[in-house]
Design a protein around this nucleic acid. Structure first.
Lengths: 127, 127
DNA sequence: TCACAACACATAGAACCTCTATGTATTGTG
DNA sequence: CACAATACATAGAGGTTCTATGTGTTGTGA
């Protein structure tokens, strides 16, 4: 199947939207599963690492979202200024845990709906 | 697990973002798989129907996106003014088919990455 | 005949989002 | 000394869907 500029542009947009819809879930998830509190820069690297480079976010993307999640009460943060560098460590709250759990359920329902839809007639479609 | 207002707000936003990232794919998909060209109002109803009410879009959402997909060259449209009502029928183009096929691949890769990530330690997490 | 729902498309403006680009400052490295 | 990596921050651009509203037609029930 040919992949013209038109098609590429669409796919770039599509991938971007897929990613962006999931950022919050991924952030909550990473912070929840880590044994110790995490800081922003670290999260960025670990997402990249754990997804084998499939998912990569910039600082300008992540920091505002972490602040947003904190403002919503799903995360809480503490500054550590005693270490080698000042770092802002995030932990998940009770509401955060609840939101994460429900969001994962929603994700599973949603991806199931999409899967059913696109596999209804066996995928790749018409001649 | 309690579900506070805070949590509900987050989930509403989350669900909305999930949905919106997939609209284009769903529209291309529906139009591609239909035997005959489809018109906007019909697409809205069929999405609702085929997903058992899980996915529902408003006219104000769908029409601009159909136009956008046409402007990008992934759909083409024809007005039918001879029937009982004037309707704008959409068909998928070659680029549209290509974009759809790649987008489905991307979706499968992406949902796989997320699935791996969130099932790495067996789901729900925490004590 | 009248009122109202459903059909069918259209669009302006609001509200929201992430990303680009840039800035600050410190620490390690060649 | 210059530069890369670490670490956080934010303004502004650019993009998106959704809300709300408008137009007009057809069908339906009282």
């Amino acid at each position: 199947m040919r992949r013209t500029k038109t098609v590429d542009k669409f796919l770039t947009k599509f991938d971007k939207e897929l990613k962006s819809g999931m950022i919050s879930l991924i952030l909550l998830f990473m912070i929840d599963r880590a044994r110790d509190p995490m800081y922003g820069y670290q999260i960025i690297r670990e997402i990249k690492e754990k997804t084998d480079g499939n998912l990569e976010f910039k600082e300008g993307t992540i920091y505002p979202i972490l602040r947003n999640l904190e403002a919503r009460g799903l995360l809480k943060s503490v500054w550590d200024t005693k270490g080698e560098r000042p770092r802002k460590y995030y932990q998940i709250t009770k509401d955060g845990k609840s939101a994460l759990s429900h969001a994962i359920d929603d994700w599973e329902t949603f991806s199931g709906v999409i899967k059913d839809l696109i596999s209804r007639d066996g995928g790749e479609g018409g001649p």
